[in-house]
Design a protein around this nucleic acid. Structure first.
Length: 661
DNA sequence: GAGTTGCTTCTTTTT
DNA sequence: GAAGCAACTC
């Protein structure tokens, strides 16, 4: 066990990593080596003879999964990392459900509806129910449905229209053999709760549970864990109540704060030594978070140097804010760029930064935002796969029928849908049976026949063992004339090229996936795509200035951080103030500040464009709360009119030299 | 039946 | 200021 000191763990970390058994709660402040403890614990378990396949590590985001897997590979081996389950909650649920969905009345080839499919369906149903006097807003309906599923709202207290919408929506999903994101959790919980055999199976499979970011778990996720924990209990959770920023998704900090209520006699270990930030950064962040009333008091301390003072800088408006920051970055040595991040509250804020960075030819990586999978062409191709795998998925099939148009127009499709609804059977069963085509014109009949013939042949090919899925997809796209149609719909050749490239990329990742996971098939590929909100970056492609939301930045760290848009209405966000969640916004700000290792710059604009109009903005109240001697306030104009100091000049020369090389 | 234009409406955060 | 949507034209 002595070699464990190799990890250079402090006493608390060491105790957590080598805790033998039972429930373990690690309260880990920002930058105290949370992930390091988790990975060290996994390594320790393996060193004690625990089979890697019986270890389950759960996190919230795919990014965290990737990161943890990489770390495990670096300390254990790729082989051991592979047989371990490192997964998001949602992906874990899919795994359970693919095995046993039949017990819940679904087929195991169910589709996973992404957000925009879900929105579309809700909209459709909302307009259908709309005959009452007050029209249903799809946004409200969507939030309501999610809240009911996450057990934060009760269906019985809602207006009748919402109730019936909810029920219709669930019926519709059942008919499509589809689940939305929330259903994955709901159904997996239900499965484990009601089927003892299944529960025991997974309990015996996963004997060692580790959960990251436990403060973000909601009621269902806690329930899922409690079903998974077997006997003897071996559960290790890590979290920080000050970094709980997913309340809007039903996360309950009480899961962490009252851990002992859920799991008996836990060992509690606090990690308070911060290894990340300079003393001044930590101090300012602590000052801010002290303003929150309900929290676990902790005593975060840093052994790091005092560091540079924190800067709070205002610009005239959003453009000057962005230009100032990027000017500064452009004067840094380009080797620094990988270690700089710009953090913002909403994705929309990234746009300006992006365009200026592009103007200046500074490489950047944009995390999140409009994802790869939101692109039309990707959704198209995914719809082909979905419709193929789950013939009941009318949503996907409808998309296939219209992209590219296959000779069936609005009227024919409407009639088709109507007949299907009357017969209560999925579209594809109509399509594939010529006997059902009587009602249509001869032209439509022809198109229907052609389509059904092609489609059946694809279905057959899908069943052939050893069939190359990428090849099949390639053939389908070619026979449908998809690429030509895509090209035609683009306004510029560049756009066409871009979109085609995206399709190639998707095909490429399908190929890659099938090679890496020969037994998972297209279904596995589709699952991993549905649950990944962004495309995986190749390791070597990760370079340049990072643009990222505060939410997505949790768990990451950077040498230099620019925290932007500290204005009333943005951070804290206007909506959160209405809802009285100001403490969560403060935590969000805290998360942002504690991402910085060496240098922290906080900016705001004194006026900002909203709805296309320039409006004056008020500085965020958080600025006052974090203010102190070590926080220097100024304006961008002031700094720009200041004569260049010698050090700055040296820096500038260094970066020019680097550029020339 | 397909494409295009001008209208409106929204803007948190993620799986 | 964009992105979706409805009504309009070819």
């Amino acid at each position: 066990m002595a070699h464990f000191r190799l990890f250079d763990l402090n006493d608390q970390q060491y105790r957590a990593a080598t805790h033998p058994q039972g429930a373990l709660l690690v309260l880990a402040g920002a930058g105290t080596g949370k992930t390091r403890v988790l990975t060290a614990r996994i390594a320790w378990l393996v060193s004690q003879g625990v089979p890697p396949s019986s270890i389950l590590a759960v996190t919230f985001t795919n990014k965290a999964v990737r990161e943890m897997r990489e770390r495990i590979i670096s300390i254990l081996s790729a082989q051991e990392a592979k047989v371990m389950t490192i997964s998001t909650f949602h992906a874990l649920c899919v795994r359970f459900l693919r095995r046993d969905a039949a017990l819940l009345g679904y087929k195991e080839n169910f589709s996973i509806l992404d957000e925009s499919d879900q929105k579309g369906l809700i909209k459709k149903l909302a307009t259908r129910i709309h005959d009452t006097e007050d029209p249903l807003s799809p946004e409200i309906a969507e939030a309501f449905i999610s809240n009911v599923k996450n057990a934060t709202a009760s269906i019985h207290q809602a207006p009748a229209a919402l109730q019936s919408l909810f029920l219709r929506y669930q019926e519709e999903l059942q008919a499509l053999n589809a689940m939305d994101f929330d259903d994955l959790l709901v159904n997996a919980c239900h499965l484990l709760a009601s089927e003892e055999e299944v529960r025991l199976f997974w309990q015996q499979h996963y004997k060692y549970l580790l959960v990251d970011e436990f403060q973000d778990t909601n009621k269902l996720q806690l329930e899922l864990l409690s079903h998974l924990v077997g006997d003897p209990v071996n559960l290790c959770v890590v979290g920080d109540d000050d970094q709980s920023i997913y309340g809007w998704r039903g996360a309950q900090r009480s899961n962490l704060l009252q851990f002992e209520k859920h799991f008996a006699h836990p060992q509690i270990i606090k990690l308070e030594q911060n290894y990340r930030s300079t003393h001044l950064i930590l101090q300012a962040a602590n000052r801010l978070i002290e303003h929150n009333a309900h929290r676990h008091k902790k005593n975060l301390w840093s052994t790091q140097e005092e560091g540079e003072p924190i800067r709070v800088i205002s610009g005239a408006e959003e453009r000057s804010e962005a230009e100032f920051i990027i000017d500064e970055i452009s004067f840094m040595n380009p080797s620094q760029w990988d270690h700089v991040a710009i953090l913002y509250r909403m994705n929309a804020q990234s746009r300006l930064f992006e365009s200026i960075l592009r103007e200046k030819n500074i490489p950047y990586r944009l995390i999140g935002g409009k994802s790869f999978f939101d692109r039309r062409e990707i959704r198209d191709v995914m719809a082909y796969l979905r419709a193929l795998l789950n013939p009941q998925d009318d949503q996907a099939l409808l998309r296939v029928l219209t992209t590219p148009p296959c000779g069936l127009g609005k009227r024919t499709l409407a009639l088709l849908i109507q007949i299907a609804a009357e017969k209560k059977s999925p579209l594809c069963s109509l399509l594939l049976h010529p006997a059902e085509h009587q009602a249509f014109s001869s032209k439509s009949r022809e198109a229907l026949a052609r389509f059904s013939e092609n489609w059946s042949s694809y279905q057959i090919r899908l069943q052939i063992p050893g069939q190359d899925p990428a090849l099949l997809l390639e053939d389908i796209l070619r026979e449908a004339g998809y690429r030509d149609d895509l090209k035609k719909s683009c306004k510029t050749p560049q756009e066409a090229h871009q979109r085609e490239h995206h399709v190639e990329e998707l095909l490429e990742s399908l190929r890659e996936y099938c090679q890496k996971n020969p037994h998972q098939g297209i279904q596995g590929f589709l699952d991993s795509m549905s649950l990944a909100q962004e495309k995986e970056e190749k390791k070597e492609e990760r370079h340049g200035v990072t643009l990222i939301t505060l939410h997505a930045a949790k768990g990451l760290e950077f040498e230099q951080v620019y925290l932007v848009g500290l204005e009333e209405g943005i951070l804290p966000h206007a909506r959160s103030q209405e809802e009285g969640n100001i403490e969560e916004e403060r935590r969000l700000c805290y998360v942002g500040m504690t991402r910085a290792k060496k240098k922290l710059t906080i900016t705001y604009a004194r006026a900002r464009r909203k709805f296309g109009k320039l409006l004056p903005s008020t500085p965020s109240p958080f600025l006052l709360e974090l203010a102190g001697e070590d926080v220097h306030e100024s304006t961008m104009e002031e700094i720009l009119s200041r004569p260049l100091q010698e050090l700055d000049a040296q820096d500038a020369f260094a970066s020019i030299r680097a550029l020339l090389q």
